[in-house]
Design a protein around this nucleic acid. Structure first.
Length: 478
RNA sequence: GGCCAGGUGGCGGAGUGGCUACGCAGCGGACUGCAAAUCCGUGUACACCGGUUCGAAUCCGGUCCUGGCCUCCA
């Protein structure tokens, strides 16, 4: 394997060489848990899941860390707005996140640290920053002093003075420099808080990732991933904190960032009202189709998510499932073309094209395993509806998770899915099989009027019949 | 305003100097009682204008357009 990755820090593709031979440490920024995961959250999870699978093929020791941010002002705001304890919101959201990502065939990370479990490490880190002159205390806050680090801005490629000039947010008066950012801030008693040398307070956003990556991956690790929007300020600030704490030792060797997701050509944003949650989408499409749609565009490119794109992904999976054989079986050797595509900076669209060239079931299953696709039995795929697929993986319904109204994402979102009315799932398999038998009888009697009417009836309920050499099979229309 | 991406056939989407992917849709055919599925055939695209070159979608310059970031949005 000769993996090449595009490194945001150098803006070039570079051969991937682990810092410690044979061992790989990878950190991906995970969700802030106050609401269901949307497509923008799902893309990095799926993309870096493919990278994780690819790395595990080659390296015996891969540690994948994906954090959970469970202390954040957005969570506090949600708790206030809903009149619900923070712990209840985070616990429920984390459970939903796990279910949704599992439905997308994303493997769980090796470590999933939570910010609230690493407060002590954060405080220790901040103390060192204060002691070394990189941070200062002001009005109960601890701030990182950006001018104390001459190389600040290298990752995002921006000039400090230009940033200040373009700043559109009011600068807090106690900052020594407009670019300084918060490491620790005071908490009133109604907000989550921990005792610290600077009084009861809570961490700023960036420090958690510095603390958690050090705790689980050490001072310098190989890969750090996330969405493009995190390059600045989040990752820039992470670099600043960590390198200052670690006496200049580099934090990350390869920075990877995925592009944004738009929906039907529009930016997905709360203000537009077109946030598409994975959970809502899973009600209409199967997880593997969503996953394939996410992998059909190169991860660094912008991805426009459309209903038609999802349908195409379903048709593609239909075709592959017809070829892979009835039972889920261990995959065979991964085709060279597929590997070469993924080795080239995770070129998943090219890998998908390579899959189209495969005809052998074992080869398809093998490539599918690496991409996290084709993970079920053929019948399970053809007979399942989105809902069923969702529940057979042990996922509780949105209602069972509770307070569905709390996750109201607005009318436009509802409209997006309203047109996808589906009758599939309204017929049980026994009824379908019974009708197929009746049709068989009619066909043997050459009563094609009856047989065609049975097929038409089933089609109206979303069931497609196919007469093959081995008899009649059925599938859910998509 | 600054910085950064991107504009490829009806659609999606790779490709970054010559060999013009791949998929979907469409069209024609085979198969089928009819379908579906499958198979065969079928489409010479690279925003615009210059330049470099024997040769450019691919390199250089310019123009237009779209999107993102610019202090807590993946």
């Amino acid at each position: 394997m000769s993996l090449v990755l595009y490194n945001t820090a150098t803006r070039r593709k570079e051969p991937f060489v682990p810092f410690v031979p044979g061992r790989v440490g990878m950190y991906v920024c995970g969700p802030t848990v106050y609401d269901y995961a949307h497509l923008g959250n799902a893309r990095p999870v799926v993309v870096f899941d493919v990278l994780y699978r690819l790395l595990k093929r080659t390296y015996a020791n891969v540690t994948y860390v994906r954090n959970i941010t469970d202390v954040d002002d957005k969570i506090n705001a949600a708790a206030t707005a809903r009149g619900e304890p923070i712990a209840a919101i985070t616990a429920r959201t984390i459970a939903a996140f796990h279910e949704d990502m599992a439905a997308l065939n994303a493997l769980p990370p090796d470590v999933e640290p939570r910010a609230t479990q690493h407060i002590a490490e954060m405080i220790a880190m901040i103390e060192r920053l204060v002691a070394s002159g990189h941070a200062y205390v002001a009005e109960g806050h601890v701030l990182f002093h950006v001018p104390s680090l001459p190389t600040y801005g290298a990752l995002s490629g921006r000039d400090r003075r230009a940033m200040v000039a373009g700043a559109r947010v009011e600068v807090a008066p106690f900052k020594r420099d407009p670019a300084d950012f918060v490491l620790w801030k005071p908490s009133s008693l109604d907000l989550p808080g921990w005792e610290s040398p600077w009084g009861r307070g809570r961490p700023g956003w960036h420090i958690e990732c510095s603390a958690m990556s050090e705790a689980h991956l050490g001072i310098t690790f190989d890969i750090h991933g996330g969405g493009r929007d995190l390059i600045f300020p989040h990752h820039e600030n992470e670099v600043a904190q960590s390198t200052c704490v670690h006496g200049g030792a580099p934090l990350v060797r390869y920075w990877l960032h995925n592009g944004f997701v738009t929906v039907e050509g529009e930016k997905m944003a709360k203000s537009v009202g077109n946030i598409v949650t994975v959970r809502a989408l899973l009600g209409e499409f199967r997880g593997e189709a969503i996953r394939l749609a996410l992998l059909s565009t190169h991860y660094r490119q912008p991805l426009d998510f459309t209903r038609e794109g999802l349908r195409e992904a379903e048709r593609t999976l239909d075709r592959w499932y017809r070829l892979v054989g009835p039972r889920r079986a261990p995959g065979g050797r991964v085709a060279d073309g597929v590997l070469a595509a993924l080795d080239d900076d995770l070129n998943t669209p090219l890998a998908v094209a390579e899959l189209h060239k495969l005809e052998e079931p074992a080869a398809l299953r093998g490539a599918g395993d690496l991409l996290g696709l084709l993970q079920q039995d053929r019948d399970a795929w053809f007979h399942s509806t989105p809902r069923q697929s969702f529940s057979t993986t042990g996922i509780a319904s949105a209602e069972a998770v509770g307070h569905p109204g709390a996750y109201q994402t607005g009318a436009p979102d509802q409209d997006y899915f309203a047109e996808g009315t589906s009758m599939a799932g309204s017929l049980s398999e026994s009824v379908i099989n019974e009708r197929i038998q009746q049709r068989e009888t009619a066909r043997k009697a050459r009563d094609y009027t009856t047989s065609d009417s049975i097929r038409a009836q089933l089609l109206a309920r979303g069931i497609v019949l196919e007469d093959g050499p081995q008899g009649t099979t059925w599938r859910r229309a998509t």
